[in-house]
Amino acid sequence: MAREVIAEQLSVEPYRVTQITGGLKLLEKFDKLKPDVILMDVMMPIMNGYDVCQEIKQNPARSHIPVILVTALNSREDMLKGLETGADEFLSKPVNGAELRARVRTMLRIKNQYDSLQSVMQLREDLAHMLIHDMRNPLTVATLYNNILLKRNQLSPRDKEYAVLVRDGLRNLAGFLDEILTTAKMEEGLLKPTSQPNDISQLITNVVEGQREVARLQGLQLMLDLPQERRSACIDATLFKRVLDNLLSNAFKYAPDQSQITLRLRYLGDENNIPHTPSFRLQVMDQGPGIAPENYDRIFNKYEVVTLKQSGQEQIGLGLAFCKLVVEAHNGRIYVSPNLPQGAIFNVEM
C-alpha cells in the first residue's frame, strides 16, 4: 500500500512514523498523536484528503501543522483545490524517495521555526506577567498615600482636584494591569465568566455615575439614553463593568473638548430569550476622530495594536482586545460603526 511505501522511504531518517488507515481516524487520534508533519493521500474513503486537510486547518490549535497531500491527480484544478483547503505541499505518485525526504525536512524546519517562535512569545508573555505582579506593590503604596491626602481635607481646592485626577489615574492603571492578567487567563481557558441575572440599566448607571467626575474634569458631557423598562440579563457583572469602563476610558481619551459621549441601551427581542441570542445592545457613542473602516476588525486584535498606532490610527488600545474576549465569552459580539457626521460607535450585543 502507498502508506507502507512512504513509511519505508522515510525509515532511513530518524523519524517516528505512525500509519493511520483513514482521515476520520486521524482526526479522532490527532491530539494523542501530536504530529509534526502529516502526509495524506487525497483519495481516501469516507473523508477525502481535501476535507481532512480543511478540518485540520480550520482548527486554530492545529492549523500550524504542515500537511503534504500525496496524489495521483496532476491537474491545475486539483492543486488549487488543495491550496484552498490549506495544504502546504504536494507530492505526485509514484512518490520519489529523495523528493519525499526533502519535502518532509522542509516542512519540519518550518514547524520547528514556528515552535521556537511560540516559545519566545510565551517567554515574553510570562516575563510581562511577572512585571505586572511586581508593579502592583508600588501602585498599592501610591494609591494608599494619595487616599490619605484626600481624606485629611487639608488640600486646597485645586490640589484636591489634582489628587482626584491622580486617584482616578492610579485606579485606571490598576484596572489595566488586572485586564492584562485576566486576558491571559481567559485565553488559556483558566477563567470563565460567573454569570448571574443582573439589571443591565442599573449596572450601566452605576458605572456612568462613577465616571461623571472624570468626564466633567475633561470638559465632556456624559449622557445616558436608557429605556424606561427594566430587564435582567445573565452576565458576569464584574467583567461587564470592566468592559464599560474600558469603552468609556477609550472615548474620554480621544473625544474633543466640550463634546458629548452617549451611552445608549436597547433591548433585543422579548424577555424569553432564545439561547445564544443577544438580549440587549449597548452603544458607546463619541464625537472623536473615528475609526477607519478597514480597521474595524483589527482594533480588537491585540497583535495589531502596535502596527495600527504606528500607522496613526487613534482610539485603540489593548483594552479593546480584553473587551472582545469578555463579550465573546458571553456568546456576544462587539463591533464598531461610524457615528456620523463624526466619531465612532462601539456596539456590544450580549
Results as ranks from 00 to 15, higher is better:
7 A>P: 15
17 V>L: 09
18 T>Y: 10
19 Q>W: 03
21 T>D: 12
24 L>I: 12
29 K>I: 01
34 K>F: 02
36 D>F: 08
37 V>H: 08
39 L>Q: 02
41 D>P: 11
42 V>S: 02
45 P>W: 14
46 I>A: 02
47 M>C: 01
47 M>Q: 03
50 Y>L: 13
57 K>E: 01
58 Q>H: 11
60 P>G: 09
61 A>K: 14
62 R>D: 04
62 R>P: 11
63 S>P: 04
65 I>R: 06
67 V>K: 08
69 L>W: 10
69 L>Y: 11
71 T>V: 02
72 A>S: 13
80 L>S: 09
81 K>T: 00
82 G>D: 01
85 T>F: 08
86 G>A: 04
88 D>R: 13
88 D>F: 11
92 S>N: 15
93 K>Q: 04
95 V>W: 12
96 N>P: 10
96 N>D: 15
97 G>L: 06
104 V>Y: 06
107 M>Q: 15
120 V>Y: 13
121 M>D: 05
121 M>N: 05
127 L>T: 03
132 I>Q: 03
133 H>R: 14
134 D>W: 05
135 M>V: 02
139 L>Q: 11
145 Y>W: 08
150 L>I: 15
151 K>N: 06
158 R>V: 00
158 R>D: 00
163 A>W: 14
164 V>P: 05
167 R>C: 00
171 R>N: 04
171 R>W: 14
173 L>G: 07
174 A>C: 01
177 L>E: 00
184 A>C: 03
185 K>R: 14
186 M>R: 13
190 L>G: 00
195 S>F: 10
198 N>C: 14
199 D>Y: 12
199 D>W: 12
205 T>N: 10
208 V>G: 07
209 E>K: 13
216 R>E: 08
217 L>P: 05
218 Q>P: 06
225 D>E: 09
225 D>K: 15
227 P>G: 00
231 R>G: 00
239 L>S: 01
240 F>Y: 12
240 F>I: 08
246 N>C: 03
251 A>I: 04
255 A>R: 11
255 A>G: 06
256 P>G: 00
259 S>T: 12
262 T>A: 04
270 D>L: 04
270 D>H: 07
275 P>D: 02
276 H>I: 02
276 H>D: 08
277 T>C: 07
277 T>R: 13
279 S>M: 09
280 F>R: 03
284 V>Y: 13
286 D>N: 05
288 G>C: 10
288 G>I: 10
293 P>K: 11
296 Y>C: 02
297 D>H: 11
304 E>W: 10
304 E>P: 07
305 V>Y: 11
307 T>M: 08
308 L>P: 06
310 Q>C: 10
315 Q>E: 15
318 L>T: 09
319 G>K: 15
319 G>H: 06
320 L>R: 13
321 A>Y: 10
321 A>K: 08
322 F>V: 07
327 V>F: 01
330 H>T: 03
331 N>M: 09
332 G>R: 12
339 N>Q: 06
340 L>W: 12
346 F>D: 00
346 F>C: 01
347 N>V: 12
